[in-house]
Amino acid sequence: MKKSSKIFVLLAVIAAIAVSSYFTVSPRAATLSVTNAIKTQNGSVQTVEGYIVGKPISASSIQTSSFSDDYALALADSPAEKATGSMLYVQIPSSFRGSFGLKTNPELIGTKIKVTGSTAAYFSHPGLKNVTAMSISAAGELPEEPEEDTGSTPTPSDNYEGYYNSASGKTGEALKTALHEIIDDHTELSYSAVWDALRHTDEDPNNSNNVILLYTGRSQSKTTNGSGVDSWNREHVWAKSHGDFGTAMGAGTDLHHLRPTDVSVNSSRGNKDFDDGGTAQKEAPDTYADSDSWEPRDEVKGDIARMIFYMAVRYEGDSGELDLEVTENVNNGSAPLHGKLSTLKRWNELDPVDDFERNRNEVIYQDYQHNRNPFIDHPEWVEVIW
């Protein structure tokens, strides 16, 4: 064969490969139905398609009108579905609330959408969290049905087998008492020792030289603690004046409710109770306050609720300690009370436990106090007790 013929053949082969590659269709990632998403609660990232049927308010109930906020959706395979057991609860991140939240967009009820996120429990119910994409579905397009994935994500109790055995099967005051007995006796720190402990418990997972500040979410050097305007200090989430326990060992130094915060933001919070509403704060624009209450950024609402509930169980008035209780009132002054109960219960549902909270709980348990916050391990116990 002549050299020119060989070159022609080679060029023809290359062209054929290029054409073949151009027209090759990549396999489309499977879209889960709601039914399959409910079965696939293993923390994997999935795209789920279903109809918006309401807004979750508990593990067993949804709102279908007069929506209270834009934080969540309930999806089902049928727009007429009424059984919450056949629904998937979707946590809506702030970036999508304006477009898909039902308080802002009630007309979306019955609309078919696609959502991409991690299959994980929300409101103690099969759910989808850490959402990265949301879109309206094309009319008539049906989801594919991949094989069932029976994998499971370990629950927190897998890491401390037996810790809550004595609370098993209890409800109401009996559960509260059992949990108190479990977490009551722990190692107490001095107030000066809290500085170093917070550098460990609240370390920025992306920068080991920094801590994350509670109300602003700012990552800041561990060494910038103090009293300066932009320094961080030790915030008592259960305001220390609510019972006048100050900084004494015990309630005053309990790491489960002490967090690093910006000095001036901490001062603005003062001893306010927790509730919705108010004016945006200059240094923490996602935080709101009025004369008697404080609303933190969405990302830590649940953290704060679970810290308050911990304090109400840990400090029950025995051994000469205060009896701290959660109340429906705000503006509680020096009484050993903290509110607002209904708001804190809702925040516990709206902002589920995340990895930062779990890690913090583990560090306090393993390295410092040797007790746990039960409501990080079992957030569903809030409703069982209160």
Rank of each mutant, 00 (worst) to 15 (best):
residue 28 R to Y: 11
residue 132 T to I: 02
residue 198 L to C: 06
residue 11 L to A: 15
residue 186 H to F: 08
residue 272 K to I: 01
residue 373 N to E: 10
residue 58 S to D: 14
residue 99 S to H: 03
residue 112 K to C: 05
residue 105 N to T: 02
residue 378 H to T: 04
residue 329 N to I: 02
residue 289 A to M: 14
residue 327 T to K: 05
residue 293 S to K: 07
residue 322 L to H: 08
residue 223 T to D: 15
residue 131 V to K: 02
residue 64 T to D: 07
residue 217 G to C: 05
residue 244 D to Y: 07
residue 13 V to L: 11
residue 39 K to R: 07
residue 275 D to E: 15
residue 114 K to G: 11
residue 315 Y to Q: 04
residue 169 G to S: 05
residue 330 V to M: 06
residue 322 L to M: 11
residue 176 K to G: 01
residue 27 P to F: 04
residue 83 A to S: 15
residue 344 L to H: 13
residue 81 E to C: 03
residue 106 P to A: 05
residue 320 G to H: 07
residue 37 A to I: 02
residue 316 E to K: 12
residue 370 H to Y: 04
residue 128 L to Y: 07
residue 384 V to R: 01
residue 18 A to D: 10
residue 83 A to Y: 12
residue 287 T to V: 13
residue 97 R to G: 02
residue 253 T to V: 03
residue 161 E to H: 06
residue 231 S to W: 12
residue 158 D to Y: 10
residue 187 T to W: 05
residue 73 L to R: 05
residue 39 K to V: 00
residue 63 Q to S: 12
residue 127 G to D: 06
residue 179 L to N: 01
residue 35 T to H: 12
residue 210 N to G: 14
residue 46 Q to E: 13
residue 170 K to H: 05
residue 51 Y to Q: 05
residue 136 I to M: 02
residue 349 E to T: 10
residue 232 W to G: 09
residue 10 L to K: 13
residue 110 G to F: 02
residue 239 A to D: 11
residue 123 F to P: 02
residue 93 P to L: 04
residue 31 T to M: 06
residue 156 P to Y: 14
residue 100 F to E: 03
residue 151 G to F: 07
residue 362 E to A: 11
residue 274 F to G: 10
residue 343 T to L: 04
residue 359 N to Q: 11
residue 85 G to R: 09
residue 38 I to N: 12
residue 288 Y to L: 13
residue 337 L to W: 06
residue 24 T to F: 09
residue 172 G to N: 08
residue 279 T to G: 10
residue 36 N to C: 00
residue 225 N to C: 09
residue 72 A to Q: 07
residue 16 A to R: 01
residue 305 A to E: 10
residue 50 G to Q: 04
residue 22 Y to S: 13
residue 89 Y to L: 05
residue 277 G to Y: 01
residue 3 K to A: 13
residue 61 S to E: 14
residue 50 G to T: 04
residue 274 F to C: 09
residue 165 N to G: 11
residue 63 Q to F: 07
residue 26 S to G: 03
